[in-house]
Simulated assay, not measured.
Amino acid sequence: MQEITAIELAKKLNDGESLNIIDVREDEEVAQGKIPGATHIPLGELPDRLDELSKEKQYYMVCRSGARSGRASAFLEAEGYDATNMAGGMLDWEDEVEV
């Protein structure tokens, strides 16, 4: 499984790269703040919302600690998507968040 650190992902964002970030946390977790521009798709809804994703794009998966996003990344990879897990999750995120 491909992984990226929170620092590496923040650098890409701050450098102006156009990224596809998916936050797989639950509603109440996301309400406390998410990475600016991230799309919220709770992990349990991911299989039913694959039509919202493109196999032509790369996705960065985010959760609280990196475990759920790791499962999401593995699932997406098995379905033929390009997914990278943000290791450490939002616990490691030190950059801006949007509420």
Rank of each mutant, 00 (worst) to 15 (best):
S73E: 14
I22G: 02
S69H: 09
D15K: 06
L53K: 00
E52V: 05
A72H: 07
S65G: 08
E94H: 14
E29G: 01
F75Y: 15
E28H: 14
K55V: 01
I7D: 14
K34I: 10
Q32E: 13
E79H: 13
A87N: 06
Y59A: 00
L76Q: 09
L91Y: 03
M90Q: 03
N20D: 07
E96W: 08
H40R: 08
A6C: 12
E8M: 12
A6V: 11
Q32I: 08
V97D: 02
I7S: 15
G33Y: 03
E26I: 04
A10E: 15
D23M: 10
E52G: 04
K55L: 03
N14F: 12
R71T: 12
R68C: 08
S18H: 13
N14R: 11
R68V: 09
I22D: 10
V30D: 05
T5Y: 12
W93V: 02
M86R: 00
G44K: 14
I7R: 15
D15Q: 12
A67W: 07
D82G: 03
L19H: 09
E98I: 12
R64A: 02
D23G: 07
D95N: 15
E96K: 12
D92F: 12
M1N: 08
G37H: 02
G44A: 12
P42L: 13
D27A: 12
Y60P: 07
D92A: 15
Q2S: 14
K11M: 14
A38H: 11
A6F: 11
A74N: 10
S54F: 08
S65T: 14
E56Q: 08
G33Q: 02
A31D: 06
D95P: 07
Q58K: 12
G89S: 07
E79G: 04
E3Q: 13
N14T: 00
G37C: 01
E3C: 02
A31C: 09
T84G: 10
S73N: 11
G80K: 04
L91K: 06
E29V: 03
V24G: 00
A83W: 11
T39I: 13
D82S: 13
L43R: 09
E56W: 02
S73G: 10
M86A: 01
P47G: 07
G37F: 06
A83G: 05
D51K: 08
R49P: 02
P42N: 09
I35R: 02
A83K: 04
Q58F: 01
E8V: 11
M1E: 05
D92T: 15
V24F: 01
V62L: 04
R25K: 05
K57P: 06
G80I: 04
N20F: 02
R64F: 03
G80A: 09
G16T: 14
L76I: 11
A74T: 09
I22K: 05
